[in-house]
Design a protein around this nucleic acid. Structure first.
Lengths: 131, 131
DNA sequence: CTCGGTGCAAAATATTTGCACATTA
DNA sequence: TAATGTGCAAATATTTTGCACCGAG
């Protein structure tokens, strides 16, 4: 976030997110970071998340009206589990077709994309859970 | 939406959405449908949109915390314009790699996906607009 | 010392829901 | 006429913002 000044709040938010394997919503992250910084305010959390997204330090996943945050900004794909609702990182190599799509009739510009798969994650599949 | 009974509200909502080329948010659609049905309530709109999405009659695009609705449920890709904010339908043939991704190490199931591109639409490109 | 960042609380948004009444099959 | 759907309003949920104070550089 144009990282002008540092703050222990931003450090804690980022550290917490990076230590996680899931992809929490703002509220989930808030509750978690609050355990170390009880005075953390929601406004501060949102301000920092927005900044971190903008400068590409973290990624933001929009699904069904919810925003989830991912500390791993490197391009990778996600599976949103229809069953348990969680996100699962797919071991799927980024498709080069998507980086430079060739569209003869298209005269705009493409800078990036968001790809989210829907289905059932390995855990739920193993336990035969369905929606 | 398990189409149990019909209602003129649902017909009007769907007809309005199908007559559009853009991909309105709930509120945009609401204001528009209200011109024919002044008494339409927001609750009814949301209830119907949710139902129509669930049974696949319409599609729902989640981006940056906003939901946009698309009457064309057929698989096609979108470009969200960074400049004017609108959605543009891409003349891009669906990638077969995405329908049946081969993931040796992956033991879950994949049922579908959402792919949204970011960039600048043809209109904005033509007029040299940038964000 | 200065300006960006924070906490707090209020405001702005967005969506859902309970309930009495209207409407479809 | 028996559900199902609607309108309305209140309740939730989510995110943003104004402002006085705190703290990094």
């Amino acid at each position: 976030m144009q990282q002008v000044r540092r703050s222990k709040q931003r450090d804690a938010i980022l550290a917490n997110l990076q230590a996680r394997y899931d992809h929490p919503t703002a509220m989930e992250l808030y509750l978690s970071v609050r355990q170390e910084l009880p005075n953390l305010s929601l406004g501060t959390l949102y301000r920092n998340l927005k900044g971190l997204c903008q400068d590409g330090t973290i990624a933001c996943l929009s699904v069904g009206g919810e925003e989830h945050y991912d500390a791993n900004a490197k391009q990778h794909y996600h599976l949103k589990c229809d069953c348990c609702g969680r996100f699962y990182d797919l071991p799927y190599a980024p498709l080069s077709e998507l980086d430079a799509p060739t569209l003869p009739e298209f005269t705009g510009e493409i800078h990036g994309y968001s790809l989210i798969f829907f289905g059932v994650c390995p855990d739920c599949t193993a336990q035969n859970r369905t929606k």
